[in-house]
């Protein structure tokens, strides 16, 4: 019997509109039925998650306002069911360790089919 995969809700957090467009288009190519919302900073992401809990979230680190890792920590402390993947160009060991300590993973930018596949794989199995 064929079982449809349940529709997922994804929140994309990135200060760059181009980056959000890239992530959105790569993910919709694989999962056209996913419902995607976007936030341009960590503060907006926290408010959006409080308002409408997503299944998954991609999170940039370097953004105006609080960092993506701080936003991740705040989101996970209130909503531990959200699966978050940190998507960043800032791939130094300090950030990789911080991501691990928060129970997430860091996938390095640029946003490509390959890096999106890594992120999706992590989200599906997290």
């Amino acid at each position: 019997m064929h079982m449809d995969k349940p529709t997922k809700k994804l929140l994309i957090v990135d200060d760059s509109k181009v980056s959000r467009m890239l992530i959105r288009s790569h993910i919709l190519a694989k999962h056209p039925d996913w419902v995607i919302t976007e936030a341009a900073c960590g503060e907006d992401a926290i408010a959006l998650v409080d308002n409408d809990l997503p299944d998954y979230c991609t999170m940039d680190i370097n953004m105006p306002g609080i960092s993506g890792t701080d936003a991740t920590e705040q989101i996970l402390s209130k909503h531990p069911s959200v699966k978050i993947v940190i998507f960043s160009a800032n791939i130094q060991e300090t950030h990789q360790e911080r991501a691990r300590s928060l129970g997430t993973t860091l996938v390095s930018k640029p946003v490509t089919e390959k890096s999106i596949a890594l992120a999706l794989d992590y989200l599906a199995n997290a």
Partner: peptide, 18 residues
């Protein structure tokens, strides 16, 4: 959008440099 795309490209470059 051009400036956003260039800033994002350079942000990735700055990440590699860092």
């Amino acid at each position: 959008l051009h400036l956003d795309a260039l800033a994002e490209v350079f942000s990735i470059g700055a990440g590699r440099a860092a």
